[in-house]
């Protein structure tokens, strides 16, 4: 017995095989929720830290170029209480809403047609291949010349600047409808119209919403270009105006507004996708 106890005392530690996976840096491993939250908060905090450092660092005059978070917040609340933020936001959002709706609608019609009919694809592919490499921003002067300086050139700039991405990406979505599903519908007696309406469209909805969500960023990009050139209202117009007064706090506040709008619309479109197409939820 004594000998046994001695033996177990002296027994070497259990040898191991393989490499223990890393908690934080395992490639494509699941991350615990608590770590997700910690890292997320840390990420946001580090941005604020960097911002605060840039604003408060000792060199004199630096805060003229980088406003402190407090000053930015102040500028934001001032714009809000004065009511300008609301009217600028409304003007910009309306332009994006109208222009981008046109773009998405065209994207759905043309994209589904190209993705479903080889004939339509053959007819439209050369033009699309050519046109999509023309930077839409380069069309701005032409649009101002053709459409004046009111709302329509801005709306059409947003529509034209995003429509090619929407068409081509939605065409890919339509192409991804499995052949077996089309064949099943055919052998159930469905004709072309039924298949488009009751197979290709429902199968494509989640993909279409995803495409619209991704390209929405480009719509805001086009809005900024349009408002910088000719506008009396709008978020980007205000940023441009703030430059003249070297009001960096206003500029920062407006940039934050852009970011928040993007975040909210992204979440809203994700929610819409999950509601409309619960069957495709991951």
């Amino acid at each position: 017995m004594v000998a046994d106890a001695d033996a177990s005392d002296r027994a070497p530690a259990l040898r191991t095989r393989g490499r223990r996976p890393s908690t934080l840096l395992g490639i494509r491993t699941e991350l615990a929720v608590r770590w997700r939250i910690v890292l997320g908060v840390l990420g946001v905090a580090s941005v604020f830290a960097l911002w605060a450092y840039a604003a408060y660092r000792p060199q004199a005059g630096s805060s003229v170029l980088v406003p402190s978070p407090a000053r930015t917040w102040h500028a934001l609340s001032q714009m809000w209480s004065a009511g300008t933020l609301r009217s600028d936001l409304a003007a910009s959002a309306q332009r994006v809403a109208i222009g981008y709706s046109i773009s998405v609608a065209l994207g759905i019609v043309l994209g589904i047609a190209i993705g479903s009919f080889a004939s339509v694809e053959a007819f439209l592919e050369p033009q699309l291949g050519f046109l999509r490499y023309i930077p839409a921003t380069a069309l701005t002067p032409l649009f101002l010349l053709w459409l004046g300086i009111d709302e329509s050139p801005k709306i059409w700039l947003i529509a034209v600047g995003t429509v090619f991405y929407n068409v081509l990406m939605i065409a890919d979505v339509a192409r991804n409808v499995p052949r077996e599903m089309l064949n099943a519908a055919y052998t159930l007696g469905a004709g072309r119209r039924t298949i488009l309406r009751r197979v290709i469209l429902p199968h494509s909805w989640p993909g279409i919403i995803d495409v619209a969500r991704i390209n929405l960023a480009a719509a805001w990009l086009m809005l900024v270009v349009a408002e910088l050139l000719a506008a009396q209202k709008g978020l980007a117009y205000q940023i441009n105006l703030a430059q003249r007064f070297r009001a960096v706090d206003t500029m920062f506040a407006l940039l934050i507004v852009f970011g928040v709008i993007g975040l909210i619309s992204d979440l809203a479109l994700r929610a819409l996708r999950n509601r409309l197409a619960a069957w495709a939820r991951p």
């Binding site: 499995p178 077996e180 099943a184 159930l188 199968h203």
Partner: peptide, 18 residues
């Protein structure tokens, strides 16, 4: 051409998931 008089069952992936 195809028609409902010849019902067909495929190996997989042919049900409408929605």
């Amino acid at each position: 051409g195809p028609g409902a008089d010849r019902g067909m069952v495929f190996q997989a992936y042919s049900l409408f998931p929605w």
